[in-house]
Design a protein around this nucleic acid. Structure first.
Lengths: 245, 245
DNA sequence: CAGTGGTCTAGACCACGGT
DNA sequence: CCGTGGTCTAGACCACTGT
């Protein structure tokens, strides 16, 4: 992600026409695309570039770090900085909070609990979460609505060992995700996007024919080493997740 | 994107047990999740925090900037820093270069041109690219293979006005995307992910039944204000795009 | 070992934008 | 106006890692 950040230039007027770290980033990017710095090739070190641009090494570091974050450069101590062989593009996509996504579109958010049951999870789920066989999980299925129309069908498994409080929550009133973000500290997670054919449960909830192609977003979140939840959200047909590159 | 970045701590041994900007970021994150800094609430300014943590303001700035990039904070000059009302999670997903993705999995990459034709584009395509009616585009359909098995079917429109060189390329031998990344300077773009039902062209190319749910990735790229290409890639059934949060 | 990037500091100027 | 964040500097120490 080219952090882009502030437009404040804080330009240095001292020497030439320097304009800040963004100017250095842009010039470096130009050289990369112009093949002046070829893929896989090492570029000058920070100290040399600082001298060339007439600025402090810190400023060069800022610019090159930004390009490395964006995937254009590979940087390693001692090994130096190289132009990435794979000019892989990175896109930052914002994981929408469904209720906010709907309200941002001017719709009215609705929520309905479909099922809630505590019991042994399927092997596949246990494996995905790294839990021992026979682990008991809370299985919650729910529907998110936009102006009364089905928007997302959600199939969720929650580990009550990690978040015991979830068992006392009236999930008919409170969205499981809303409760979790409010009550579980920062956690890392994995995200997987795919296309799926709607099974009977999904199709009936989303009011579409069985086997319709639906967009699936699966998330697993962890608190430290302990798994919290595995949730798969099936979006109503036509859904598009967009971002800019 | 929590830049995470280098593990190098460069710890300050001077005063207390400070460990660098990441420690400050983590502590700020703890306060956010502990509601010591409530959503929408303003937090102390950089100078005050620097004094509290016994470090330079620059270091606090680095930590808070990172949290702002990750979406936890909203920062504005003069207005100060506030805890984001919507703790939206951002995920950075790497747009895979198909040939590299396949080779990284140990497969052998294959490519086959399906069709190539220069002519008027459908209205829908013209609109998506912001082109006038009657614009002539190069329409290229191709297949990417992994160990000889269909992997991705690609439907692409290229604007020859922006990249005239594409017309002289033997697309039976050279992947259009490979040529474009090599010959077109940095450009911005839009990305849309969705699920689609395979139409006849997709189904026959991917060797799956018609109407199968397939993962679609659509990209539009621009050079300045001029559109370069609109490409939709349909992945073979079972494809998952994954990332970590 | 030695070179390179990662980070910290203390101080400074400036752009932005709320009051 | 003037407080706040954005950025720059010059110098320093350190972590990492290829040789």
């Amino acid at each position: 992600m080219p952090s882009d950040g502030g437009k404040g230039t804080g330009r240095q007027v001292g020497r030439q026409g320097m304009l800040g770290w963004q100017a250095i980033r842009d010039e470096a990017l130009r050289r990369i695309h112009a093949r002046e710095w070829a893929p896989g090739e090492m570029i000058p070190n920070e100290a040399d570039l600082a001298q060339e641009f007439g600025c402090a090494r810190t400023t060069v570091n800022r610019a090159l770090r930004d390009l490395a974050d964006a995937g254009f450069l590979d940087r390693r101590r001692k090994a130096g900085t190289r132009v990435a062989l794979t000019p892989l593009r990175k896109a930052t996509l914002e994981i929408p909070v469904i209720s906010q996504e709907i309200e941002a579109r001017g719709g009215t958010y609705g929520y309905a609990l479909v099922s809630r049951r505590l019991g042994a999870a399927p092997i596949a789920v246990q494996n995905r979460l790294g839990l021992p066989a026979g682990a008991r999980l809370l299985h919650v299925c729910a529907l998110h609505l936009c102006d009364g129309v089905p928007y997302v069908y959600e199939d969720r498994w929650v580990n009550p060992v990690t978040v015991p409080g979830i068992l006392q929550i009236d999930l008919g009133r409170i969205n499981a995700n809303a409760w979790l973000v409010q009550n579980v500290p920062y956690s890392r997670g994995e995200l997987a996007l795919s296309a799926a054919a709607a099974d009977d449960a999904v199709a009936s909830s989303l009011q579409c024919p069985a086997s319709t192609a639906v967009f699936a977003m699966e998330r697993i979140t962890w608190m430290g080493e302990a798994p919290i939840t595995l949730v798969t959200q099936y979006h109503a047909p036509g859904y598009r997740l967009t971002t800019s590159i």
